[in-house]
Nucleic acid binder design. Structure first.
Lengths: 348, 348
DNA sequence: CTGAAAGCGCTTACAG
DNA sequence: CTGAAAGCGCTTACAG
């Protein structure tokens, strides 16, 4: 490995001066600087990241720790998160450590030990639950971190979208078209984003002087098979919904399949909207008829998240750096007006 | 941050002795050792990974660098690779850095710079192409690494399966049942594993005194949509295949869909086999009728790969550490015998 | 069994 | 504009 000492010997200058020349300091003779830089290039010098870290107290490494899981469901989403995040973090000149724990590992302990061992500048937290122990732990440690999403129970830096608005916007559109029997295939209510979306849906109904039918509100794992079976269920009701709001495009795909299976036509018999995270593997674009709904690309979140985390690390005193990303809405094929509520009590 | 100095002050011993006590050296008084360990636990001491790295010349970090890609196709597989690899590497007490480059980034340069900067002990290379520049680069650098798969043009440590046997086994089974018009939906022939599988298929035909119909050998991107369209194509031939070998379960899913679309019954009209990588997101288990074929779980590869890489790093002189993992075969629903070749020239 | 010293490769006051 | 020195936190001969 080529070190400053090698260059120093090569050009006949002190290590100090070589360091300064390479570091771009002003108090170095221009000719000297050039001579040093040439030698560094010729010898293939790369500053030793370890030594620099020890001196500066910063490693340039950020980590994400995820609990291991034999459950592919919970992983489907994770893929795009990991790839997108890594790409953005790498682009910022930082290294991204992905630590996949053993199933059942103590994630809080992993964060603590990794941080205490001094090699990690900061952390990314995804999928926070209310009163998330990881957030509490990192806050107590004074470790820099940023959260994708929000924990309503404790203050922390985050990047998120307005999930209340997600639910409200889609429900409002359908209500405005005259739909009354609207189902919502929401994510797990243990997570704040799902709670907020439900609140948004509730609020849209309230704004129309109505209230939701609890039997049409479902909380499911957000993947295609679950969406399909939940939709099959809904379509078999005596009084089936005329519209379904899906929490993401994977659920929506399940809804499309279930509708086809049941001989229910979209958008003729059933309007479908979904929130679109802009996932590459599960694009909203492939649907026939077109899938409408709210949209906020996760890729934008990774860019913000990485940049904000870098700044938080540099600031060293964690600022409450919050950011709400934009949301767009497209009605897709959900343009079917319903003049009279089709739903009527059905006699036995 | 708690350092040796803090413990040293706390217990009234030299830093040297504290280090030895914690390091589990024998030449330390048992009572002293206990006292030191207690203090370390009480103060929440974790050895500073950076300092240790600088001293020992080893960071405990291994990296995988993948070219960024806006193409989801190439990513589908990567997910399970990344998660599985990270889990195994983490389990071994190493850190796993995932570096996703910008689209079009110079991957060789990234490896070089990352290694030269001294923070990385070794690398994992996946999906090698013949005469792979990454392998050449790391070999030249003298950097420890291991490859999943093989580059036939240069020697290097690897973990792989016998892909010749994959092709040979599946083709032989079908030939033995009497099938003659056998299609093969293979992966890209730019990769050695696909070349080997083709050779295996060729060899099985040769062993039966036959040779393949080049029109039935297809090289495609190994995902469902491509498998589906390739299979649709094959089933529309004047003289369609009676059996299809799929390179993986995603392709097989496409074949099942295409068969359903075309009204072709499996296994009545068409036998299907596939190689199964044991992917969680694309399980071979969900098929109806059951999907047979060769099988080698990637999860086993990650375990071997991680353990071997750790050993290579420790040895510091890269040994040619090669490993061929086991393959199993199950015929699934592909039990349909064909007494006479159904294929006959069809007049215009 | 214990401690003082050197050194991993770098950065950065401090002194010239 | 340049250099000698200290120090980041650790490990490890070397000497007692």
């Amino acid at each position: 490995m080529v070190t400053l000492k090698d260059i120093s010997r090569d050009v006949g200058l002190s290590i100090t001066q070589v360091s300064r020349a390479l570091g771009g300091h002003t108090d170095v003779n221009a000719a000297t600087r050039e001579r040093v830089q040439l030698a560094a290039t010729r010898l293939g010098y790369r500053p030793n990241a370890i030594a620099r870290s020890l001196k500066t107290g910063r490693s340039g490494i950020v980590a994400m720790i995820v609990a291991g899981s034999r459950d592919p469901d919970s992983n489907a989403h994770l893929f795009e998160i990991v790839m997108g995040l890594s790409a953005e973090i790498s682009a910022l000149g930082l290294q991204f450590v992905l630590h996949v724990g053993q199933p059942g590992a103590d994630v809080v302990k992993l964060h603590t030990e990794l941080y205490r061992s001094g090699g990690i500048d900061g952390f990314v937290i995804i999928g926070p639950s209310p009163a998330d122990p990881r957030i509490k732990c990192l806050t107590d440690l004074g470790a820099p971190f940023i959260v994708h999403g929000r924990d309503p129970e404790q203050p922390h830096p985050f990047v998120d979208i307005d999930n209340f608005d997600v639910g409200r916007t889609m429900a409002d559109h359908l209500l405005s078209l005259g739909h009354r029997r609207i189902a919502f295939l929401n994510g797990p209510l243990s997570e704040f984003f799902a709670i907020q979306r439900q609140r948004g849906v509730d609020a849209a109904f309230a704004a129309h002087g109505l209230s939701v039918d609890p039997a049409l509100m479902r909380s499911i794992t957000m993947i295609e098979p679950q969406g399909r079976s939940a939709a099959r269920d809904l379509l078999q009701l005596d009084n089936p919904p005329t519209a379904i709001i899906a929490g993401n495009t994977m659920i929506a795909r399940g809804v499309y399949h279930a509708a086809a299976d049941a001989g229910v036509s979209i958008p003729g018999d059933l309007s479908v909207l979904a929130h679109d995270d802009g996932l590459e593997l599960f694009p909203a674009a492939g649907f026939e008829p077109p899938l409408g709904g709210t949209s906020a690309h996760l890729s934008a979140a990774w860019i913000s998240l990485s940049a904000d985390l870098k700044q938080i690390i540099a600031a060293s005193k964690t600022p409450m750096h919050n950011r709400i990303l934009d949301l767009t809405f497209d009605k897709g094929s959900a343009t079917q007006s319903i003049l009279v509520d089709r739903s009527m009590p059905v006699g036995p």
